[in-house]
Design a protein around this nucleic acid. Structure first.
Lengths: 187, 187
DNA sequence: TAGGTCATGTAATAGGTTACATGATTGC
DNA sequence: GCAATCATGTAACCTATTACATGACCTA
């Protein structure tokens, strides 16, 4: 499971709670992986049973207790084993493209509405990646001093940007083509 | 579930068996959605129970019997309802980017091997999409006469091509950057 | 006083993969 | 003789989502 290895990766930087791990997902890798707390907590438990993690409880007053996980030597070995393992591209699952594929059933205007909605969302994301998200990466590097790591955080963000640009380009071209599509042409 | 609607989409073109549906997945939408037969068969059953499909058994000699499904009026309504429903981009899940994100743990050469492997696979795919796959789409349009539908099949393929190009560009840039990366720079 | 943050989960359900099973025909 | 094609599935398992539950503190 990739989730386990993403968790190992972050715990390899520093010990953390499940709640904090979720925050790291939400602000640094959410554009290519994410998980809900209800999946993270049981997964951390299973990883502990497998010996990849150890856990101590920090008792707090007026706040829930914190379960702080840290990576074990076995966990580090598993992380490195997984990182070295050759990986194929993930099988894509894009429901929106199913809609377009069968788009012949819809009217021009319905399709255009779908595409414009999609285009707007991808433009928003692109702007975020180039602005706020890039800035968060920079701040993380500064705060942790992890220069070499920061280089790789930036690389994944570059892919996020290329991905959004590809979608934007495609949406714009698709909109143009559909606008000039002959409505009388029925099958 | 998107699988159900992809099945509805194909059955809306023509009645078919589960086995034939799988073949359609494998040769026309596999680059953005796919499913195994062991998922397709029970799903068709559930769709029949929901009233979206009807089924007749074709008895064959010397071959297994065929269960031919065809879409019902309720099925067509469900397909159109789903096609019209506004859709957000699918949450991406890319395990390879997790490996790159935590790539600081690996040596330059290990990373380069991963990236070169990835690059080669994406280049193969791009070539296929621009050649054989494009040709299959053309033939399907010719064989069925579904010109308007063929336009949308082509659109999704365009996105597939942009997607592969984005990966290829990114892999090439990442390889260059890593090659010139200072190995002594430790964190 | 209503909603957000901190912090933990469980239970039910949905979606997807892997492994196993059958059995005749056709092509290499 | 061995693998592929045609054609159907079941069972076990893994992964992920949704809904529910608790409870105190802080801010608008």
């Amino acid at each position: 499971m990739s989730l386990k290895h993403a968790l190992l990766g972050f715990l390899n930087y520093a010990p953390m709670t499940g709640y904090e791990l979720k925050q790291h997902f939400d602000c640094s890798i959410y554009y290519f992986w994410n998980a809900k707390l209800s999946q993270i907590y049981p997964t951390l438990n299973r990883m502990k049973e497998e010996g990849w993690l150890a856990m101590e409880v920090e008792y707090q007053e007026n706040k829930p207790n914190r379960k702080v996980y840290h990576i074990t030597e076995a966990g580090r070995e598993e992380l490195l084993r997984w990182l070295r393992e050759p990986a194929d591209p993930s099988p894509p699952r894009d429901a929106f493209l199913i809609k377009i594929f069968f788009g012949g059933e819809l009217e021009k205007e319905e399709l255009l509405a779908q595409l414009r909605h999609h285009l707007a969302l991808h433009q928003e994301r692109l702007a975020a990646y180039q602005g706020a998200v890039r800035e968060v990466v920079r701040q993380n590097v500064e705060a942790t001093g992890l220069e070499r790591e920061g280089f790789f955080w930036g690389l994944t963000l570059d892919m996020g940007i290329k991905y959004e640009r590809a979608w934007i380009e495609w949406c714009q071209e698709a909109i143009e083509k559909i606008e000039t599509l002959n409505d009388d042409q029925q099958s």
